[in-house]
């Protein structure tokens, strides 16, 4: 398989790459903002997974020219799976206080994801098939006081993916929206049992992508939790703090 991962230095993206690489030899294109960080990740992968091949490509998420050029470059050979993973957890109080920070967060978390998804979608259509996975979040399921800037970005991704799914309903292109719950970093593993490890989240994502699910909750329990959260009447919801 030829697998393109955008924002390959993110923890979930790295773990998804590991799940595929452990299964056998694949060709990976690792795309990201910093060539030096991509290089560190690629070196590690090359040592751990000698049967796979890893290439790195630099992308400026704020530039449509860069997005066009990188898309054209990575799609010169057939892409079986493209994963779009960029995002940064927005600090809500900071976003509320600082419009420039908010703009930069929305640009990265929402706009750049839509631009890359749109460009990749065209290439997937042209090559006649393939899978596009886009990382959203459970935070996009309902606006909440404590993370609505981040949630709104992720909600944009959700509607974008829904549109793409309908657009490709009759073609061989599959679009999956991935919604991870809060994920543990190595440091939080022992302390916060409610958070899933990036390894287990990655496994859920890969099995969801392989079975062509439209929406992948990871861990899958979040499908139930967010169903409840979405359906709490506002009269009650407004009193809650989570």
């Amino acid at each position: 398989m030829r697998i393109v991962i955008v924002s390959a230095t993110s923890l979930i993206a790295q773990n998804v790459a590991k799940v595929y690489a452990e299964k056998g030899g694949h060709e990976f294109v690792l795309v990201g903002r910093s060539l030096s960080k991509l290089g560190a990740v690629a070196n590690d992968f090359r040592i751990r997974f000698p049967t796979s091949v890893f290439e790195t490509v630099e992308l400026d998420f704020e530039s449509t020219d860069s997005i066009r050029a990188v898309s054209a470059k990575v799609f010169t050979s057939k892409v079986d799976l493209a994963l779009i993973a960029q995002g940064s957890l927005t600090n809500q109080p900071k976003a509320s206080a600082d419009l420039d920070y908010l703009q930069q967060q929305l640009q990265l978390n929402a706009v750049s994801v839509a631009l890359v998804a749109e460009e990749f979608a065209d290439h997937l259509e042209t090559q006649g098939g393939g899978t596009l996975g886009v990382i959203g979040s459970v935070a996009g399921d309902r606006g909440r006081a404590y993370n609505y800037s981040y949630g709104a970005s992720k909600a944009l991704i959700e509607i974008y993916c829904q549109g793409l799914q309908q657009r490709f309903a009759k073609s061989a292109v599959t679009v999956s929206l991935i919604k991870p719950g809060p994920t543990a970093t190595p440091m939080t593993v022992d302390h916060d049992a409610r958070k899933a490890t990036p390894e287990s989240v990655a496994k859920t994502i890969v099995s969801g992508l392989e079975s062509g699910r439209r929406v992948i909750y990871a861990p899958s329990l979040w499908r139930v939790i967010m169903f409840v959260v979405r359906n709490i009447p506002y009269a009650i919801f407004k009193h809650l703090s989570f």
């Binding site: 560190a40 990740v41 070196n43 590690d44 040592i47 751990r48 970093t185 190595p186 440091m187």
Partner: peptide, 24 residues
């Protein structure tokens, strides 16, 4: 300062068996 996220292998020489890695 936890090193658990500094867990990358940096260089490997399959001829000599020398591994260079991050501390985590």
């Amino acid at each position: 300062i936890s090193t658990l996220s500094l867990n990358r292998m940096i260089d490997w020489n399959p001829q000599t068996g020398v591994l260079v890695c991050e501390p985590g």
